[in-house]
Design a protein around this nucleic acid. Structure first.
Lengths: 217, 217, 217, 217
DNA sequence: AATGAATGAGCATTCATTCAT
DNA sequence: TATGAATGAATGCTCATTCAT
């Protein structure tokens, strides 16, 4: 677990506007090119900040990347918190989640791409550092919703809540990537014949049928 | 579909042993570091072959990479073909698939890592080139099995076969990564509490329950 | 006509001394080895500058080469402008040109070598890019002088001014190379028996006799 | 002076047809790309001979180049010998030379290109090795013709025969390049406005006027 | 003698990081 | 604190030459 900051204190002192310029430029760069291929000098130029400054704010490239990832996770967490707090039926929740994925994947293609990059970076440290916060939140939310569903009788009791949450997230995670990442978009097309998952209602409907039935007693 | 070779004819002429040394070295390199960061000179050294030779066999780095990926896909295809040809009940097939994933992911960690790397390289050309070969086979197999299931009454008829195949593969793909890739391993642990999906029977059992129920009328 | 700069603005910002170190090192390298064989890393070392810096100043090897050539052309142009502006008799002008060639070829052997290399690089783009600036100036100067000669009666009127200028330059160009370039030096020796055109006055005298007579009515 | 062979005895033993295949392929390669950039492996492929064989015939790349140059010089020498032996008036001879240049430059662009490459190769050994044979022949021919002209009264006696021969060759050499080499073609265009020296008769006429007058008493 | 696969030093170019101003 | 010029190690790829068959 790694919740510590990855930037120097100086980064907190600069103006919000400058901070956002940096975050945006770096997010774009890393999302488009990945960590290894992302270029610090390009980020500096795009953010209209000097490289020297960047190195005043961050120890090195990796720390800038980690900071960016933190930010993108925070953005996603906001969305998730809304879903988590509602008291609805699990299937309603699932529908909300899917619709949120559809909406936010289109609005924040870069964040999703970045998340995708993150999941396959060949640096174990990155992976384990962030999997925790990112996933532990969704894991908890899904598991609680499933347990709640068991109580209300919406979910059969003979499946393991934690594992079911995992399966659910497998579906959601790939669905999310299918809206934003090259490989997954292509894959979606191969499976369903559609260019991108454009018929959102169809996707919602099919997913719900599948999941509802999977949970049903 | 892109089944053409990505190597020069010379690569077919060298000894099987040398060819395998190269394949292994390159698979290891690309699986660990990805395409961009994979180092041709390192591969040559690891394979005990000169760089010059490598460039006699492959036009460039990309073609070596593509060749490697082809090999890994072929390996997977063999497994899949066995599953495809059997005439069993869809649930038996699903079980077989999961057990195959469990077995081969452990045996061929590198291939799975390579596949994972491939899915997140930010190169659209790679994406479309490989999504097709990689996924079109599984897509077809799953869809046919589902359609067969509809006929035999094992699968409800109101779900879209193609989309259900996609959902199924979402689950399998992530499961596969969970056995071999750092991020996904960590994520599995967060969801289920287990270090790696070691309790294979538990995984099979839970997946089957979920999927069986999802398909059930 | 290609008078645009071939360097990045950064090259204008560095100290004159450093700029000259680079120009000198590169001129030497390219003059001795030609474009293809000239080595960027060697130039950097000779100029006591890092390769990285060189690439901050120039987009690539070709642009460094073009810049060098521009410099050498500018040097020559200064000399030519003096000759051009004078209002003298064409034969006086010819004598001045020859003496200028003699003087400058000895002083700037490298520039002449560079020009020689340039004329035979098998790169059409280089050729057309520079032939124009280099030659169009001399072409105009010679042609105007000849036309002026026709008016004053020093030059017969039945020869084509432009073509005569071309023939004149043929002689001058080879003369110039004869002072600086290995092949042409050897060739001069074979023709005249002299090691290098050392007896400058003899060369002047003979050339003048030949050209004067050629122009004479 | 270097008249020795630059190939191993083995090259004399192979079939004439194979020898010519090699000569042709190498001439093409070196004429188009120059010595440094000419590629031995490409030559072997083009000549349908193995690289190994090439190295059986020639010590190294340089010796292959030198051999090629020898051949091209021999070709030119044949032409020159014809001119040399005729007993004509010097101006008729000059006309013949120009027409020969015009004809052969178009027919054997590669040989001329090769000769051009040779004159600027930055390897002193090349230069001095070949200047001798190539130029000493023309030097002698031109000088003798001029001396003959002096006797017959066609050439003024106060010019140095050797130097006049040199000036003559300056004109011819550049004229030759103007028909075959990129830089010189461009330069010809700048001076005369014509794309290539296509109006051959005009060229002959103007050259003759110039040279005739230059020699005239 | 002929082959052509193998070699590996060499080169243009990139980019994370430093540091003088 | 901010700047951005400077650094140089690192990498994909080429090609003259060798040598086992």
């Amino acid at each position: 677990m790694d919740l510590q900051k990855h930037h120097k204190p100086t980064f907190d002192n600069i103006s919000k506007e400058k901070r956002e310029r940096i975050i945006n430029a770096a997010t774009m760069e890393f999302a488009m090119k990945g960590f290894e291929n992302g270029n610090i000098n390009s980020i500096a130029k795009k953010a209209e900040v000097s490289v020297g400054s960047l190195y005043k704010y961050f120890e090195n490239k990796q720390d800038l990347f980690l900071t960016i990832v933190q930010y993108s996770i925070s953005s996603m967490e906001e969305l998730l918190l809304n879903l988590a707090q509602s008291d609805e039926d699990i299937l309603l929740k699932v529908e909300k989640i899917i619709r949120t994925i559809q909406k936010s994947s289109k609005e924040n293609v870069l964040l999703v791409k970045l998340y995708n990059v993150m999941t396959s970076e060949n640096n174990p440290r990155f992976a384990s550092q962030f999997a925790y916060e990112m996933e532990s939140m969704t894991a908890r939310i899904y598991r609680l919703a499933i347990e709640q569903g068991k109580k209300t009788g919406d979910v059969r009791e003979d499946i393991d809540s934690a594992f079911a949450a995992y399966l659910l997230d497998n579906i959601f995670m790939n669905l999310q990537f299918s809206y934003a990442c090259d490989y997954y978009k292509e894959r979606f097309k191969i499976y369903t014949g559609n260019d991108t998952p454009q018929r959102d209602d169809f996707v919602v409907e099919q997913c719900l049928k599948f999941i509802k039935s999977a949970f049903k007693k």
